[in-house]
Design a protein around this nucleic acid. Structure first.
Length: 658
RNA sequence: GCCCUCUUAGCUCAGUCGGUAGAGCAUUUCCAUGGUAAGGAAAAGGUCGUGGGUUCGAUUCCCACAGAGGGCUCCA
């Protein structure tokens, strides 16, 4: 048989026998590679390892320890899940089951609106392992739509997908199942189980097995809340036992950082049931941290030439009619209060009120850019199921600013805003930023093409000037203007969306805002909305998770705790405490009513940065024993030296770190 | 709002096959004064989320509501 030549990713050529498959190519390179091969790519297209290569093809082998490989084995595991469910729950309809970050899910419709229980998960898991042990092959075949409809005649959701392919409306939501192509591919595991799928898949189920079923959840068919509610099973799957274990440990670590758990443990804040859902009260420990955050924010805004304003929590309905919020977002607002002189609403945002301030008198171009700043508390009636600790809450405070400027000022203003945002976030220990630029949704937007183009260009320009990478989210802008969103990565690599910078062409129009230009004519200002923390509550929650409750010294509720070894040292301990307080530190003391070890333990659990132990030696020498959070104990430190050290650390926290 | 699960002492959790409840930690008091992550003893603490229903009797079974958790949808 004649040889053909294929090219490998490193550019080298390779001769293989005509009719060779991707797996044969892998085998020709090495037997271990062939073992690890679960799929391949030919000329950039994902394929099964059983696919035959042609002369001149560029062939790559996909192994399990790559993102692409894991994606494939997760998707294959989803098929195994579907087979197990179909076997165990006769009459179950299976719908779609894609791979996702770290795992996969599969959505099912069970007969008679049955639901899965946790016990069911255990049974399903067991059956899945039997399927893995059986080493079933994944055999690909291609069918016409008519053939496929016949094969899946008793699977209405599959038929719907097939019909969508036939009528050419299949889109991203169908992508895991079928391609955009006219032919429909299916993968067969056994004579009785096959599934619509674009592929590729592993060769056999025996290449799978390092998976865990995580949870059951409800999910709407096609994400449509008017559509049927399906039963979704989430799972995670990895290339080997170690990777699976690592993932599960990571989840445990993240759970330990849960801000709702830490808020209770550290006595920071609570959500009393009597208050109502999504409403928090701040306890002294949490309130002091919040105050420090707000003080810091205020100081930075003063430095940045912002003008401080205050606006009330209620407003006449007319205001929100003017702003358009009542038209668009009435569902998300707390209900109206009818008074003798009109109808009032709690404010869901601050912008309309800031517009009133701008509009309070005639404005000159000389006043622009005018930057109004407020820590403004707003109320939004978030739907019950969406509440989530501090991250999604019904009453919250935005570090909200509205900047009124001319079109020409827009680019500079946005550029300096980006500096400002990053500088503030760095102070809270975030150094890894990702930017998203959301552009116009042509169907739903206000404002002229010209102004959209200018504003989008100004945002892009600012990003370019900073030399930062950014993703463009086409059509993701609000109806009133384009925006930049900023995501940060926390200490364990999770992504959080925090800051936002938005252009608004709508409110200036609706409120008829104007300024007098140097040409003596009236012009409409551009309005920029921006929040750095986003909401103080949400930012606090993210910060809690980021620091795992161990706030840096400048933010810690208690910076140092003095512990006398025995009662005899209490007087001295008190003088040390007073010196710390006089130096401006937040410090306290725990009397020797309990053993030293226990008091140290409790202080550590409170994540206090410094525990100062004082005994006979210290009384004699004016020293302390310093037990720092996460560090080594140091004895005989002069009190003055410790104060200077802490002073430097706090100062560095507030102003260093750039 | 939708699907599932949950709600017992300040916290973390047992428990009652329907006969009004227990532990550890925390709290208070007493003893102990201990140099770097839990010393000992005692006391106090609960209309078992709320409201209805079934029952001789409900914290337990049923229903509704509220709140929480996991998802979906939504997030100006």
């Amino acid at each position: 048989m004649a040889d053909i030549s294929v090219t490998l990713p490193d550019g080298s050529g390779r001769l293989v026998a005509d009719g060779s498959t991707v797996l044969d190519v892998a085998a020709s390179i090495g037997s271990r590679l062939a073992q690890a091969a679960i799929a391949g790519t030919i000329n950039g297209t994902d394929v099964d390892v059983s696919t035959v290569v042609k002369d001149g093809d560029v062939v790559a082998i996909v192994t399990t320890n790559s993102d692409q490989g894991r994606h494939i084995l997760r998707h294959s595991t989803a098929h195994v899940l579907a087979q197990a469910v179909v076997q165990l729950f006769p009459g179950a309809h299976y719908t779609i089951g894609p791979a996702i970050d770290d795992g996969f899910y599969y959505d099912f419709a069970l007969p008679n609106s049955q639901t899965f229980s946790d016990d069911d998960l255990r049974v399903i898991d067991k059956r899945m392992r039997e399927i893995v042990a059986a080493g079933q092959p994944f055999e690909r075949s291609e069918l016409s739509a008519d053939e496929a409809l016949l094969v899946f005649a008793d699977q209405p959701y599959k038929c719907e997908i097939i019909e969508r392919v036939r009528s050419g409306v299949a889109d991203g939501s169908d992508a895991a199942e079928v391609g955009a192509a006219e032919t429909i591919s299916v993968y067969r595991n056994t004579d009785s189980f096959l599934d619509l799928c674009l592929g590729p898949h592993v060769r056999t189920t025996s290449q799978l097995g390092h998976f865990a079923l995580m949870k059951v959840a409800g999910a709407y068919w096609r994400g449509n809340e008017k559509g049927p509610m399906l039963q979704r099973i989430y799972g995670t799957a990895w290339e080997n036992a170690a990777a699976l274990k690592e993932h599960l440990v990571r989840l445990e670590e993240a759970a330990k950082r849960d801000h709702r758990k830490l808020a209770v443990e550290l006595d920071l804040l609570s959500f009393p049931q009597e208050l109502g859902g999504g409403l928090a009260v701040w306890h002294p420990r949490g309130a002091i941290v919040r105050k420090l955050m707000e003080d810091y924010s205020r100081q930075r805004h003063l430095d940045g030439d912002y003008q401080f304003v205050y606006t009330p929590h209620l407003a006449n309905a007319q205001l929100f009619e003017t702003s358009g919020h009542l038209d668009f977002y009435a569902d998300g607002m707390y209900p109206p209060m009818e008074m003798d002189n009109g109808v009032y609403y709690p404010k869901p945002m601050n912008c309309p009120m800031h517009c009133l301030i701008f509009d309070g008198r005639q404005r000159s171009y000389r006043e622009l850019p005018m930057r109004l700043f407020e820590l403004g508390t707003v109320y939004r009636y978030e739907r019950a199921g969406t509440l989530h600790g501090l991250l999604r809450i019904r009453g919250f405070t935005q570090d909200d600013s509205h900047i009124f400027c001319t079109e020409d000022q827009m680019a500079d203003e946005i550029t300096s805003l980006l500096d400002f945002v990053m500088s503030v976030l760095r102070r809270f220990g975030f150094y890894d930023f990702e930017f998203n630029l959301s552009t116009r949704n042509p169907v739903k937007s206000v404002g002229s093409d010209d102004i959209w183009e200018k504003a989008t260009a100004a945002l892009a320009e600012a990003l370019h000037r900073h030399g930062v990478e950014y993703k463009v989210k086409e059509g993701d802008a609000a109806f009133y203007g384009p925006k930049i969103d900023l995501d940060v990565r926390d200490a364990i690599g999770r992504k959080w969306q925090l800051s936002t910078i938005q252009c608004d062409f709508n409110l200036p129009e609706r409120f008829g805002l104007e300024y007098v230009g140097s040409d003596s004519a009236r012009h409409r200002p551009i309005m920029l909305h921006r929040a750095l923390f986003g909401s103080v509550e949400r930012f606090f929650g993210v910060l809690l998770e980021h620091y795992a409750g161990a706030f840096p010294a400048w933010l810690s509720p208690v910076q140092a705790r003095v512990l006398p070894v025995a009662s005899a040292h209490e007087d001295y301990a008190r003088t040390v405490l007073n010196r710390l307080k006089k130096s401006g530190f937040r410090a306290d003391m725990t009397a020797a009513d309990e053993q030293l070890g226990k008091r140290i333990r409790n202080s550590k659990l409170e994540k206090i940065p410094y525990v100062l132990v004082v005994g006979d030696d210290d009384v004699a020498n004016d020293t302390v024993g310093v037990n720092p959070r996460g560090g080594e104990v140091e004895r005989d430190v002069a009190v003055e030296a410790f104060i200077q050290r802490l002073d430097a650390e706090v100062l560095d926290g507030q102003s260093g770190g750039e």
